[in-house]
């Protein structure tokens, strides 16, 4: 995507063309995601009705009663008609009613999204900053023991399934030591004030640690290799020849290495919405990720479609953000009036 970004902003004339192409791609992605989203549930066995009205009842119903009930909960009509309705709903952001919660999908999403952001945003910032620091340090010390230890350590973390790490953290810090609550996002009842805020923070610790630790790896490796790349560049030799100290030279390299890291980070902003499915499930955290899982299990089509749409939009928003803000960090792709006579 880095390359794509550069291309997008590099040339003068094909810019519009590129932007148009990009836009077309986004539209296509949304369309494909929507269609998949609509088609998948309907291809598979499963009974949305039982979840809408209760399993026991759905089983006891006669076909006529079923048909009536389907109509009542809005699952009637031909596939094509449902698809049309679905697309129209998606475009007008009218996502319908969740059959599981009996509420507008948008409301359910709005309830859940903040919780996901609360754990994913800190994790993202933490893991990126820790990993950038470690990655730069490792690259600077390439080939030394500390580089190897760091590398091995980070690769080990990266090898851990997120849910497993979460489980171990729960077992050790939640159950054994009893330091942190292991369930949910907030205390059972909101009493408000500081104690509430503290309780919420306590519940953030383990999920945030889990996500931070497991996502450390990709940032670390990316930083390390980007850093190695820039350390080998000619400007680093110049920097040394200028008599710059270690810290300054490191910054020279890191400032350049940050470019791909930045792109990676902006693009993973979509994780803010979708990222933590498994971890949220492990910690029973009421975020969008666990919502997706629940809605899928419950065959709550409207909700599932809403979540999926939200996630797809987030992915695209992340890409868009990466495209739009990349020039801020890399002057080479900034569009500005050429300096006269710069030949």
């Amino acid at each position: 995507m880095n390359n794509g970004t550069r291309r997008l902003f590099a040339g003068g004339r094909p810019l519009l063309l590129r932007a148009g192409r990009k836009l077309a791609q986004y539209v296509l992605v949304i369309f494909v995601a929507l269609t998949l989203n609509f088609a998948l549930p309907r291809l598979a066995p499963g009974d949305s009705l039982s979840f809408a009205i209760g399993e026991a009842l759905a089983q006891e119903m006669t076909p006529e009663q079923r048909a009536q009930a389907m109509k009542e909960v809005g699952l009637d009509g031909s596939l094509l008609a449902q698809y049309g309705k679905f697309l129209k709903g998606a475009l007008t952001l009218d996502l319908g009613h969740s059959t599981k919660f009996g509420e507008p999908v948008a409301e359910v999403l709005a309830d859940r999204l903040p919780w996901t952001l609360r754990i994913v945003l800190p994790s993202l910032i933490l893991s990126a900053s820790i990993a950038v620091g470690l990655g730069a340090y490792a690259a600077w010390n390439r080939g030394r023991k500390r580089d190897l230890f760091l590398l091995a350590g980070v690769l080990t973390l990266e090898s851990m399934p997120g849910f497993w790490l979460g489980m171990i953290l729960i077992a050790v810090f939640g159950v054994k030591l009893g330091w942190f609550p292991t369930y949910g996002a907030a205390p059972l009842f909101s009493t408000g004030g500081w104690s509430y805020a503290v309780a919420v923070m306590q519940r953030m610790v383990l999920p945030v640690s889990t996500i931070t630790l497991v996502s450390l790896g990709s940032y670390f490796l990316l930083t390390r290799s980007a850093m190695l790349d820039s350390l080998g560049q000619d400007y680093m030799m110049m920097a040394e020849a200028k008599g710059l100290g270690t810290r300054k030279r490191m910054w020279h390299a890191l400032r350049n290495a940050l470019l791909p890291v930045y792109t990676h980070m902006t693009m993973s902003l979509s994780l803010l919405v979708s990222g933590a499915v498994v971890v949220e499930t492990v910690f029973s955290y009421p975020g969008v990720g666990s919502l997706l899982y629940e809605s899928v299990l419950a065959r709550d089509y409207p909700l599932m479609q809403g979540v999926f749409l939200l996630i797809t939009l987030a992915v695209i928003a992340g890409n868009l953000l990466a495209d739009l803000t990349y020039p801020l960090v890399d002057p080479r792709v900034r569009i500005r009036k050429p300096l006269e006579g710069s030949r």
Binding site: Q25, Y26, L28, V29, V32, A33, L36, N37, L40, P41, L43, A44, P45, G46, S270, S274, G275, V277, V278, G289, L292, Y293, V296, L297, M304, V307, F308, I311, T312, A314, V315, I316, N319
Partner: peptide, 24 residues
């Protein structure tokens, strides 16, 4: 390559869960 672009942009993990559930 457009196809590749699209499938790289699709949300990966959620899709995996959705497919996983529906195929049994």
């Amino acid at each position: 390559m457009r196809l590749v672009d699209v499938s790289l942009t699709l949300p990966f993990l959620p899709l995996m869960i959705v497919i996983g559930v529906f195929l049994g």
